[in-house]
Simulated assay, not measured.
Amino acid sequence: MDDNPRDWFGEPRAAARARPATTTSDLRSQVDELLDAKIEKFYAEVPYADHQRSGSDINLEYYKRHNIETILRLRRKRTVDALAIGYFTKRDPVRGAKWAHYVEDEMLHDEWFAGDLAKVGVTKEEIYSTEPFQSTKLLTGYLQYGMEFEGTPLALLSSVYFVEYVTTKTQPSWVRNLEESLGREKLAGARRHVGTDIEDEHATFVWEVLASLVNTPEDERRVIEHVTVVASLWVAYFIELYRHVVAQPADALEAGRTLAAGVV
């Protein structure tokens, strides 16, 4: 539907039916192939990328900071989720209801990770007093820019699909390896999070909502662009994490940018 206020408050089912019947299976295959290549390159070229998946001597500070950042990122993303709900309430309430249910399901997952961190000595005060990495701020800003200045949740939904897809591809092996080193009881939150994403088929659900915004070849191009940008920020985050915890140079962010330019 176009952005016509006269259409905003009509019959909700009619709004859903008014959307063109767009087939996006080819686009999804293209995105998935892109993400598979990004994951492979990530493991091959980003320092410490394979640490949580196959490291036998886990760097506990790296693990802690990664989970703290995961929580900080989740807390900031849910503010953008709220903007997306507002978008759908006006233009497509049927999908708005579905997205609101998904957001409700994801809203408090940071508590699961905080519970895991408590078992390795990290308090909530420490978590929430930590300054987010620059890569986290850039990601949040990118998603908010899409809502505030482009007027669409296309960037957000592309990012959420990225997260759900990459989670199903990477996190089960990370959790299994971390459980062997730290103990299964210390990964209860992470395992619950991954299990929810896989069992509820979150990647497929998110794609179906994303597809409702894809009506033109230009929309398809933008999805590829958004996924590529988010993947770049994903790499930048792990480089920043490595530089901050492991390498600790004087200018971790600049070092991360330099290395990311050659990886992404």
Rank of each mutant, 00 (worst) to 15 (best):
L74R: 14
A49C: 12
G55N: 08
I71A: 02
H51G: 09
Y48R: 12
G86N: 15
D50M: 14
I71W: 04
F42N: 01
N67A: 10
E69P: 03
Y62R: 13
G96E: 01
I58H: 03
K98E: 08
R75I: 06
P47F: 05
D57P: 00
H101V: 12
T79N: 14
A97G: 01
K90V: 00
H101R: 11
Q52T: 07
D57Y: 00
G55Q: 02
D81L: 13
Q52C: 10
Y87Q: 09
P47W: 08
A49Q: 09
D50C: 12
R73D: 14
E45P: 00
I85P: 02
L83A: 08
L60G: 05
P47C: 04
R78C: 02
A84D: 04
H51M: 13
H101A: 15
Y62H: 13
P93N: 03
V94R: 02
N67I: 11
A82Q: 15
S56T: 12
L108C: 09
K98S: 04
A97Y: 04
V80R: 03
N59G: 05
E69W: 05
R65N: 07
T89V: 07
E61L: 13
T70H: 06
D57V: 00
Q52H: 15
Y87V: 02
E104K: 05
I68E: 00
A82Y: 13
A49L: 13
E106R: 06
A84P: 07
E61P: 08
H66A: 06
F88H: 09
I71D: 01
D57C: 00
